[in-house]
Design a binder for these strands. Sequence first.
DNA 1: ATCTTTTGTCTCTTTTCTTGACAAATAACA
DNA 2: TGTTATTTGTCAAGAAAAGAGACAAAAGAT
Lengths: 202, 202
Amino acid sequence: MATARTPYQEAARELLRQTVFDAARELLDQHSWSEITMAEIASGAGVSRQTLYNEFGNRNEFGFAFVIHEGERFLDGVEEAVLAHTDDPRAAVGAALDQFLRSAADDPLIRILLSDDGTGGMLPFVTTQGLPVVQWATDRLAAVIEKGWPQAPAADVKLLAESLVRLAISYVTTPGEAPEYTAAHVAELLGPFIDKALGSAE
Amino acid sequence: MATARTPYQEAARELLRQTVFDAARELLDQHSWSEITMAEIASGAGVSRQTLYNEFGNRNEFGFAFVIHEGERFLDGVEEAVLAHTDDPRAAVGAALDQFLRSAADDPLIRILLSDDGTGGMLPFVTTQGLPVVQWATDRLAAVIEKGWPQAPAADVKLLAESLVRLAISYVTTPGEAPEYTAAHVAELLGPFIDKALGSAE
DNA sequence: ATCTTTTGTCTCTTTTCTTGACAAATAACA
DNA sequence: TGTTATTTGTCAAGAAAAGAGACAAAAGAT
């Protein structure tokens, strides 16, 4: 597919954000969120501190933007897993959660989130203050589900998506069994609702 | 290797050039060099015409920049081919030329160059006015050879590189035998000099 | 030979990024 | 706990880059 010719400026803005996120990830690889400063992120990206504030508003908003940006990776994988099982909704949910937990196991973002020892890490971005992330992930996931089951009731899809997002966050921050069992159990737990909402045999 | 953290502005300039080159390639796929205007290239890239002139100077310089930019592809392939035969200089030259002629066979740049019917194509950029391109390619190729045979006399390397570049341009614009024979014959032709300059059994 | 288009250049305006400054908030320290 | 550093968030001024419009000169087309 021909890359939709985005005007140069759009691409430049995207490059700016990407560059800044890269710099932040590199810093967060060694230091906690509270240890790194906006000035360090800016200079790491070869950009002025003001540019950071212009683009992201404040430190907190940048944190959210970073988490969401990094989170895109997971949604991409999840989408693939879901759309590979449009004939079996329960399997789709299981595969998606399994895929998520597996890829999370050695992902930089998750490493960063879990390295929070309670003194200024990024965990709050997905927990106590995690509403924006939950909403973003819910919207993304709901869109994926609607892609696979267009005729499913929107309210049911949204409820299912939000629940899955919250469970996923819970299981990734507080791991239980191995991914395959976790995924299978959740799929079984939500099975009846899934059948009702997405149809048991399309 | 960790991508050398290039300051954002460097990357932005690179993005600009890349975007413009992409737009030009797309236009040149359908029209000849003389048929497309600087204004069309600019708008194709989502950039003002002035920005084009600021970055490239004039139409002619842009042409050279485009050809050289597209030519980087070949040098990358050639470098790989050469460095795979540092134990056998003749084979290295043969493999490099073979690699070049093969990849040229279905390359967009070569298609564009060869589609010149004499009425305003890009052929002059590599022939009658091709000195800048020859010099650029010679420098690049000489650097590759010096990487593989550091102790070879610089003058010999430069002479060999320039000759190969000129032969390569000749054979790509005026094809003779199949690539493998052409490459083998040239390697044989230059063999004695290669042995002398790079060493016959290093 | 005239008319049209394109090139190359100039200037003005707008946008974006940078720089330096500073009060307020936060953290570090004595 | 009171005092010093830092860091944050915001402003304003300066610098750099890109956009927009105009125009003469060159090149092409009719």
